[in-house]
């Protein structure tokens, strides 16, 4: 299925969860926040939230800033 991930078109396995996606990307579950279609999905739901075809995902973290 197609997922728009941080602004890029990507192909992901059907039935993948947010936690699965983060693991697949090699991103630690700590200190990131995930939005699906502009709604935050809390960390407690990363294991269970299934992604759907066409979802728009943002994965953000802290970077240097003033």
């Amino acid at each position: 299925m197609k997922i728009l991930l941080n602004g890029e078109d990507t192909e992901q396995s059907d039935g993948i969860t947010i936690a699965g996606l983060l693991t697949h990307l090699g991103i630690g579950l700590d200190r990131v926040a995930v939005e699906v279609n502009q709604a935050i999905v809390p960390k407690t739901k990363h294991e269970t939230h299934l992604l759907s075809d066409g979802d728009r995902i943002e994965i953000v973290h802290f970077v240097g800033g003033g």
Partner: peptide
Amino acid sequence: ITVAVRRVNLDRSKESLL
């Protein structure tokens, strides 16, 4: 200390400030 919120770099080789 202040930090900004930005997209995670999907290239895993990049280190992170934290």
